[in-house]
Write a protein that binds this DNA or RNA. Structure first.
Lengths: 146, 146
DNA sequence: TACAATGCTGAGTAGTTTAGTCGTGAATCG
DNA sequence: CGATTCACGACTAAACTACTCAGCATTGTA
């Protein structure tokens, strides 16, 4: 039932891009270094995010990656579904298979859980994750200063 | 994010045992046939369920498997955690790792989802799944009789 | 006591997925 | 042109999934 590292790393990368929004293109290597991610793997994740329109990239010196939209408009759900595919816990529970067909055994329970989960993930934006991280940093800093 | 077949099959097997509770031991081969599960695989799942005290078994002719407790007392959560291990969507979100340590990035969202999910699964019993299946069977039968 | 029916256990395995690396090529800036 | 950056596809080691199978242990019946 674990989320793969794709979703985890990809969201971390977008948080990084959101934090540096408006400062021009951010390079892969900087994201990888700051977030402690393997750069050549991050490569593939950024490619997927670009294909799905979350980021745009420019090549050449001074090139890099940027968000295409404000972080407030990017939901956690959309990013995870981009990188992980469907988050459905059982195949018969995925959106496509919900056309009146019987949800057998325990699957009706999982269908409810899945719907709640998606609603929850759709209600959180990258901007909120950035804000959460900033608060966390302030808490750490306050601890040190005591 | 998919549940494995272990949890799925195991719950199906327990539903079968619950339906035949009070009729003496139920044989592996009967469960496998009725629920369309590979018998030699079901073998391992029943072994795990026995180790964790969900079923007891008797060998020899006339032997088989039985629930150790009423189906009303067996929650879906306990069965799934027996067969799947932790259902946590991220390692840092698992129960063991929740001692005040920082839930970084998106993990605080998943921690909330995880808690809700476990509460939901803990509120459903095998008895309810049996009842749900019976209702479904009645609906099918009614359709045929029209 | 023999034997047949049943469960128990661990080894093995083919296929898939995960989490990457690496090399080459393409675009761009100076 | 040459340095810098992204783009893309091939490749891979390790782990996991979903099994099968052989052989042993236990028990009821004749």
């Amino acid at each position: 039932m674990l989320l793969s590292t794709k979703g985890d790393y990809g969201v971390r990368a977008l948080i990084d891009l959101a934090k540096h929004a408006g400062e021009g293109p951010v390079q892969r290597s900087d994201i990888a270094r700051r977030r402690q991610l393997p750069e050549s793997y991050l490569d593939h994740l950024l490619a997927q995010l670009r294909r799905d329109g979350f980021v745009r990239s420019t090549r050449g010196p001074g090139g890099g990656h940027e968000l295409t939209r404000p972080a407030e408009e990017i939901t956690l759900l959309s990013v995870l579904e981009c990188l992980e595919g469907s988050l459905a816990p059982m195949v018969c529970v995925a959106d496509a298979n919900r056309g009146g067909e019987s949800l057998c055994g325990q699957s009706w329970v999982w269908a409810e859980i899945y719907d709640d989960m998606r609603a929850r993930l759709a209600a959180v934006t990258i901007a909120e994750l950035v804000e959460h991280e900033r608060q966390h940093e302030r808490a750490i800093a306050a601890n040190y200063s005591i």
